[in-house]
């Protein structure tokens, strides 16, 4: 499978990606020359020690973090050649983002929060709500539709968070330590949900995690250290990981 997909162009691609943060007078390199290819339908897990640049890499792919130099292509489109508004639009349609914290709009109930990305994209409220209810139903969460999201358990909140990321039917889901605040059971439930989205709906998933237990869900394992990718393993569905040779 990996062999077959490499003939197509990758859905996510970075070329010599560098990012430096300015802290006072000092320059802190966070990403150092990252070349990355993730193909459609992959479940990529990025792991590595704290501060190695995992989240920054994810935010750059999301189009929210402007790289210092280098290119980010999503779906073949160079993200940072677009204007800010255009990029926001693109992000809203193509990428679903799940953060460690759900960050609810507190004044909205569950279904309205799930419908939010559609409303941002300019859908009519009626259609957006209908779609949001459908997605919640798919996740078995419809009974929580009218609740306030802040009242729910961490596991429920993260599943709704994932539902929110999926309402716009994005091909790509980026998840930044989505299980970070969950207990073991809820964490595994969320990972199973992500895995089934990857396998049944063929969504491309890029997930940042600390937890080695989850590596088994991945079809691509990216190890980061000090702003660089030092390991890139691929495997077919249940086979062993093999190193990527470029």
């Amino acid at each position: 499978m990996a062999q077959a997909e490499q003939k197509k162009s990758p859905i996510i691609e970075t070329v010599d990606l560098n990012k430096e943060f300015h802290i006072g007078d000092r320059m802190l390199p966070v990403l150092r020359g990252i070349d990355l290819e993730i193909y459609d339908g992959m479940f990529a897990i990025v792991y590595g020690p704290s501060g190695c640049g995992k989240s920054t890499l994810l935010h750059t792919i999301l189009g929210l973090e402007q790289p210092t130099t280098g290119i980010v292509r999503v779906d073949g489109i160079e993200l940072f050649k677009m204007g800010e508004n255009e990029r926001a639009n693109f992000r809203g349609k193509r990428i679903g983002m799940v953060f460690q914290q759900a960050n609810w709009i507190k004044s909205l109930n569950v279904v309205d929060n799930v419908a939010l990305p559609l409303n941002i994209a300019g859908w009519t409220e009626e259609k957006a709500k209908k779609k949001a209810i459908n997605v919640l139903q798919l996740f078995g969460l419809k009974r929580l539709a009218e609740r306030q999201p802040g009242e729910l358990s961490g596991g429920e909140q993260q599943r709704i968070n994932l539902a929110r990321a999926l309402t716009t039917d994005p091909q790509i889901i980026l998840a930044d330590e989505p299980t970070g605040n969950l207990d073991k059971k809820a964490g595994l439930e969320l990972m199973t949900l992500l895995k089934s989205l990857n396998e049944k709906s063929n969504k491309t998933i890029v997930l940042v995690t600390h937890n080695p237990e989850y590596y088994r869900y991945a079809s691509q394992l990216l190890q980061m250290e000090d702003g660089q990718i030092i390991g890139n393993l691929l495997r077919d569905r249940q086979s062993e990981f093999k190193p990527v040779t470029v």
Partner: peptide
């Protein structure tokens, strides 16, 4: 701030 952040992450632009 977080609400503004998440809206932007979900595709809202500065004008919105």
């Amino acid at each position: 701030g977080r609400e503004i952040g998440i809206m932007k992450a979900l595709g809202a632009n500065s004008k919105d």
